[in-house]
Simulated scan of single mutants.
Amino acid sequence: MLVTAMLLGTSLPANAAAAQGPPAAAAQATAVREPECIWPGNAWLNPQFYWRNVIGARLGEGVIHESSSPNPFGGWIAPGSTFAFRWRPETTRNPIGAQYHVHRVNLASVMAVADVEWVAGPGTLTGTTLSAQETPPQKLGDTVVKFRIRPGTEGRTATLSSADHSLTTRWLFANINNLWENFGSISFTVASRASLGCGSSSVLG
């Protein structure tokens, strides 16, 4: 079914997702932290997006590159363990006349079980939303968010889905809406160190 992609809307300010400065130093721990305890997974989610006009012709497209190191998605991770989430939106073909794109991903589910230790790169984390402005022809670099799993969250699951992503494009004097080409979700579960077989060892798998 054809979907009209060009809809009028209010514009976003040019600095709506301005790059933030170098990450602040993580707070010093007052207690010795236990070794990392992660059973890595291999689940990944790279949502693809595109624009099209009323007759169905594509105006442009792109992809959101996402990865984690080590990767808990599809696996298990114990409280106190950390992982780095890497995020990079990339428009591979811009709609003619596009001025900028504002990409967003809602990390609420992950942040319900994990604390943010630092953020580095062009993205800005406001509340639970990570956003970045892509201004053609410049390309965005990676934004990295380091998470530490919060104590007391054993048994809870964190999910990241295509529905958590959104994009606003400023085109000439209006905004145009994009469409998502693939849908899916990935998740990880917080488990106790004992259930993962962690003693003094670190990453499993």
Rank of each mutant, 00 (worst) to 15 (best):
T4E: 14
G9P: 10
T10W: 12
S11M: 13
A14F: 13
A16I: 15
A17N: 10
P23N: 03
A24C: 10
A26E: 13
A26G: 09
A29M: 08
P35D: 04
P35T: 05
E36T: 01
E36P: 01
I38K: 01
A43V: 00
L45R: 00
Q48V: 09
Q48W: 07
Q48I: 08
W51Q: 00
R52T: 07
V54L: 13
L59D: 00
G60Q: 04
E61K: 12
I64S: 03
E66S: 07
S67I: 05
S67H: 10
G74L: 02
W76S: 11
W76L: 14
P79N: 04
F83V: 04
F85A: 04
W87R: 01
E90P: 02
E90M: 06
T92Y: 05
I96D: 13
I96P: 07
A98I: 04
V105D: 02
L107I: 06
A108K: 12
V113F: 09
L130R: 01
T135D: 01
P136R: 03
P136N: 03
L140F: 13
K146F: 03
R148Y: 09
I149G: 05
P151K: 06
G152Q: 00
G152A: 00
T159P: 00
S161Y: 06
D164P: 01
S166L: 08
T168V: 15
W171P: 04
N178H: 15
E181K: 15
G184I: 04
G184R: 05
I186W: 01
I186H: 01
T189A: 03
L196M: 14
C198Y: 09
G199K: 14
G205M: 03
G205Q: 02
